[in-house]
Design a protein around this nucleic acid. Structure first.
Length: 268
DNA sequence: AAGGTCTCCAACCGCGCGCAG
DNA sequence: ACTGCGCGCGGTTGGAGACCT
């Protein structure tokens, strides 16, 4: 059929984003919101394709992103969700506020996979490796994966998929406090798990609600960073100053710390 | 100190899906 | 029903930094 390229290849920049490009993209989206990505580079004055802009925004620049390594509880939740959903990273990411599919995918490939293998668990089937080797002849691993097209409700009685008793309980042993409560509530909530097969993304949508936590019941889990916090890390990562964006949401302490970071950056 | 190897993650690529005409 | 377009997803890659010899 010959699919059209996502963008005019000529004159389109590739590779790492510069601080200047980030600045332009952030400024544009904060001013205009997320509209037609194809038009964004043109309107924002970027020599990038729309796809690249979307990726940069969703994976790195979005102010609601959490940074840093996944916590123990988040990691366990990823394992649990992966057992149910397979490599549906976007679905998994939708249940981890502030995390992107790319981030989770990377973390899975670099950390969790190895961890599971070390524990003697097959990262694909979530079965013990020796058990799997014994039953390899009778069934292929992919047979255990859920089939969204066939059944929207994850079969809770299915050996591999029914990980409530297995991984969730192990999580409760491994983690503590609010995070394990969050995970327990997510994993034990059938309706929530079922909704993963639909297009509902309640947690993620809630992230853009900048109303105070007390007024926002979706944001009471302690995992969602505030808008100010996120703006702080966002700018923390850049070589430019907060004033370039015209943000007025920083308090004095944050502004001071940012200035310190900026000064550090200038040294490099 | 220098060179080689490994690890990690940002970014790219190609494909599938949904929608509009 | 068909076609083209735009978006989003998942797999893969490339390069920078960390680590090892």
């Amino acid at each position: 059929m010959g699919r059209q390229p996502c963008c005019d290849k000529l004159g389109v920049k590739k590779g790492p984003w510069t601080a200047e490009e980030d600045k332009k993209l952030i400024k544009f989206i904060l001013t205009n919101g997320q509209c037609c990505w194809r038009a964004v580079p043109k309107l924002a004055g970027l020599k990038r394709c729309g796809k690249s802009c979307r990726l940069r925004w969703t994976n790195y620049l979005r102010p609601d992103l959490k940074r840093g390594l996944l916590t123990e509880a988040e990691e366990q939740l990823v394992i649990d969700l992966h057992a149910r959903l397979g490599n549906r990273w976007s679905k998994i990411a939708a249940r981890l506020p502030g995390r992107t599919d790319n981030e989770i995918k990377n973390h899975w490939n670099t950390h969790i996979k190895k961890k599971l293998l070390k524990m003697g668990i097959d990262p694909v089937t979530h079965e013990p490796l020796n058990k799997q080797a014994a039953s390899q002849d009778s069934s292929s691993p992919t047979e255990h994966l859920p089939q969204p097209g066939n059944n929207h409700k994850v079969k809770e009685t299915d050996g591999v998929l029914n990980s409530d008793e297995n991984s969730s309980s192990s999580l409760a042993e491994n983690s503590s406090g609010e995070e394990s409560l969050l995970l327990d509530s997510i994993c034990s909530d059938d309706s929530l798990m079922n909704s993963m097969w639909l297009d509902e993304t309640p947690l993620v949508e809630a992230l853009w609600d900048t109303t105070p936590k007390a007024e926002n019941p979706n944001n009471d889990m302690g995992l969602l960073p505030s808008w100010e916090d996120n703006c702080a890390w966002l700018l923390d990562c850049q070589d430019f100053g907060i004033h370039d964006f015209g943000f007025n949401c920083f308090n004095e302490i944050e502004t001071n710390s940012l200035q310190t970071i900026e000064m550090k950056g200038e040294k490099h």
